[in-house]
Nucleic acid binder design. Sequence first.
RNA 1: GCGCCUGUAGCUCAGAUGGAUAGAGCUACGGACUUCUAAUCCGUGGGUCGGGGGUUCGAAUCCCUCCAGGCGCGCCA
Length: 653
Amino acid sequence: MIREEVAEILKTILGVEEIPFNVPPKREMGDFSSAICLSLAKEKRRPPLEFAKEVVETLKSTLLPYILEVTLSPPGYLNFKVNWPKLTEELIPEIFEKADHFGQPREIKNEKVFIEHTSVNPNKAMHIGHLRNSVLGDTVARIFKWLGYRTEVCNYIDDTGVQVVDVVTALLYLDPPFFREEDMDIQTIWEKVPADQPFDYFCWDLYARFQGEVEIDLSLREKREKVLHQIESGTHPVAFFAKELATRIVRSHLDTVAQLSIYYDLLNWESDIIHQGFWEATFDLLKARGGLRLEAGGPNQGCWVVPFGGIVETSEGVRSLDKILVRSNGSVTYTGKDIAYQLWKFGLLDKDFLYEKWGTQANGEDLWTTARDGQPGDHISKQFGKADWVINVIDVRQSYPQEVVRECLKQMGFKKEAERSIHLAYEVVNLSPQAARIVGAEEKEEKKAVAMSGRSGTGVKARDFIEIVKKKVVEKADHALEESVVSALACAAIRYYLLKFTLESQIVFDFDEALKTTGDTGVYLEYAHARACSILRKAEERGVIFGWKKTNLPSQLTETERDLVETLSRFGSVIAKTGKNLRISQLTEYAFDLATAFTNFYEHPDPGAELQTPFIHLQDERLRSFRLSLVKAFQIVMGNTLKLMGMATLERI
RNA sequence: GCGCCUGUAGCUCAGAUGGAUAGAGCUACGGACUUCUAAUCCGUGGGUCGGGGGUUCGAAUCCCUCCAGGCGCGCCA
């Protein structure tokens, strides 16, 4: 808030786009500083010190809000001293007044951001790697909503992919009674499913087992091939069976992520993309708008391709870099379908899904789903798709296919949409050797990290992890906790753990690391918030009334008061910045800074003094009132920060 | 072969657009609860920012090169 305003003034004085700020090595020098004159001096061919002197003179004649003094230190840094009491005088009432909306941009953006996340194959239980995706996507959605965008959160369900086919085949043909097409009621197959185990867990094992069996048993491969076609037909009983299976798994996925306060607006089913003829429309569009070519010869003879790099010769022979969208047998590739889907997201396709309500979620919001016999888009209260921005949350391994989709959009002439197609790429979650051992993965060679794999059944299942964290939370508490508090703390711990890494950092999942409840963790944040709530509650119980009064403001703030005020003032710009660069870990970093600033203020409101007096016991009524106001302000801003990260705002722990 | 990412304290990680003396948390050791919540706080210890070159007033950050690790590049999805 202060820096932005100073930046604006400097921009007009210096005529530059960006003003970088940093913190001086010593506080006495200033509260923040800028080296802008140093970098500009070179351009202007002037001695930096002399140039900076001029700038300081100009600044002195300008009215700077909240700035007490501008000084100069060699070789040309501008140092700014903030008038903290003046800033506090403006900031605290603003926080009180705006409360939940403090820091939010005033204007409502008339743009819609479409965020797709989770998108787990509906054939087995989720694992912790999937949770990283969901938590990131959910947090991004919360940030954009906060920033005033319309958002639509969508979970893509690939119900026709090979993964579902495998589990369906396994269920039909691995154990007796086997499926007999002619005379069998499909219900007998469902009766094979054990009742004493969650269905997604059952499928987790079944899928892994099938991978092993299909390697040896050739007849299983034929059966799988048959099942694939039956599912693709859309009308065969097996197709309905597959849809039912996927639906049951999706339900368990939704239940799982709901434990981390993750909800959606829409479920998009791959089968509906196919049935609604999205690809055919896209194919026509591609042909009409160019970029697509039918290969008459070469390695890709008979295929429709998007020219990407032509033919190259490598050590392994001749290869084509062009992207095949339609195979020589006429079938469409995954990328082709993905392009169609991306076009729909932007409303560029003359096709739409049919929709129906799926149900009401625990957050009170309706969840919709695409459906084969649903309502047309213009008959329902919601409008899906037609976004201005599309954010696909997918792990980094999909970077190339995502780049292809973007490139194809560009080649079709949808340049703006291509630019607004954002792939939020994050690194995968692997298991530490210790974690791998615990989940029973057999590794021949000793590796630093073990990849999770649905195929081999290696992974920490999401719900197992949540339960383990809950147990740990209960264990660590020195008093009995309510069930809702346990859940909220587990949610905060897990979300924080998955958010605090930078996107390009691989998480090597380790139980000891992930189960921490002290220090830089979600529990610490919740604790700080609850502590603030307790102070305010206790103050009220004791009849200590306080309110914001300008006259209560001390002429000078203590160090910890000042740090807290400074951190509070940064809130709005941190969120704006995070929305801009999508470096989500900046949000967790800020949350930790804020909680730490408060805790320091709480522990040492008078740094250096022999005795620290609890706020509510202060004799000086004005100081007491002022400090309690700071607690209140913290409680509001910390609450906002927690909500943005999808964490509860616990009032007591 | 081509491309992308990573390498920072014993461990796990922050350090966006180059800035002044590189920061947290965990671990270890030593302290602080009759108190507004000790899941906290204070102190001590801990670093050739993978190696080497370069760019410049200034490099963990930019360029080159080498080393180590991960990932991607299919008429798979």
